[in-house]
């Protein structure tokens, strides 16, 4: 049994769906954040798979940039979540509804 492009894309789609529904359905900001990261990694996996399939380096170059930027983003994002917790003593998103109406 050989592992082809379709299998990689299936895994990537599955990861993306898990991340998406995590963002959509969970209330804990940290879990939502993890969902976001999952979606990001799903897209990098798809990029690597396409890169390999086409025998070009373009996708790999994108992936390097995405990983770098994601690292920075995690630092900023976690800092925001910590600041939010300090301010409101909770990280449940349904408590953060100051923009309502």
């Amino acid at each position: 049994m050989s592992v082809g492009l379709e299998d990689y894309l299936a895994v990537s789609g599955l990861l993306f769906a898990i991340g998406f529904f995590g963002v959509l359905l969970r209330r804990n900001t940290l879990i939502i954040y993890m969902g976001l990261e999952l979606m990001l990694n799903a897209s990098t996996l798809a990029l690597v798979a396409f890169s390999r399939y086409n025998n070009t380096m373009d996708g790999n170059v994108f992936v390097f940039f995405i990983i770098t930027v994601a690292a920075a983003e995690v630092a900023v994002g976690l800092a925001i979540i910590v600041a939010l917790f300090r301010k409101r003593q909770t990280i449940q998103v349904d408590q953060h509804n100051a923009l309502r109406n």
Partner: peptide, 12 residues
């Protein structure tokens, strides 16, 4: 204004 629920899930 009714669209602005303040819930992040709504926006998603």
């Amino acid at each position: 204004r009714a669209l602005h629920t303040g819930s992040i899930h709504g926006y998603v």
